[in-house]
Design a binder for these strands. Structure first.
Lengths: 125, 125
DNA sequence: CTTCTCATGTCATGTTTTATAACATGAACC
DNA sequence: GGTTCATGTTATAAAACATGACATGAGAAG
């Protein structure tokens, strides 16, 4: 994952900030989550924490609703997009040879150590 | 201000998030503010809200401290940088003619209306 | 015209997070 | 030994948030 993608997916914004950035109420934001349209992280105190990607998603949902699409429809749209992504992904993987896969896996494992500290990756061990 | 600069200067992060991103304690973050090294915004409820620029600044402060520079020294460094910026800025302005200045001022005023709604710019009026 | 559903509003209650101020402390320095 | 600096710790109050329940207005369906 690129640096930019990583920053966009960091869950750092509380719901109050999200309200201001999206002009949605807390009720709406939580409702969309209940309908499985957004998936905020939770911090240690059970508070919802949102990423910039989540913001984009919420603004998108707002647009769809403004267009008259209901939540069931929006859900279908996202399911469709998810299927598309998975298809492209498996297609990419299909074109990799076995040595490729092993090399990629090894590289990913080598990278793990640099992303956080050991305790965070292995809590209580 | 460019779109990117604007995003980096949006005060959207609560102190808890800043603690995790910078690995500083709340005590440290507030102390650096007390020493005029960072200037977080406050929200309606008097909570400090930080921007990405603030995060950078805090990480920088941490580095300076790790290098053995004390807060008085860090303050001097930032004052110096500020003077440099002001000098370059006034140099740029000096090269503008009076009509230039008037045009720029007018353009900035014209842009104000598009950035927020009227009530926000003129609360209670 | 009633009934139902959907998206959202509102309210009550409990927990978490933050602000502020005060006192405490360890290291470095004189 | 006494000061200063950067930070820790604690107490107290206020703000923000989570959850769950009940309310509601608009539209669809009967």
């Amino acid at each position: 994952m690129s640096e930019k993608e990583l920053r966009r997916s960091l869950s750092v914004l509380p719901i109050g900030t999200v309200m201001k950035l999206t002009d949605l109420t807390a009720r709406q934001i939580r409702y969309y989550e209940q309908q499985d349209l957004v998936f905020p992280q939770r911090n240690d105190g059970n508070r919802r924490m949102y990423s910039l990607n989540d913001i984009d998603r919420l603004l998108e949902i707002k647009d769809y609703l403004d267009e008259g699409i209901n939540i069931a429809g929006i859900k279908k749209i996202y399911e469709q997009q998810k299927r598309e992504r998975q298809k492209r992904q498996s297609e990419r993987e299909r074109q990799l040879t076995d040595p490729d896969v092993r090399r990629i896996l090894r590289d990913e494992l080598m990278n793990l150590g640099g992303l956080g500290d050991y305790d965070q990756l292995h809590p209580g061990s």
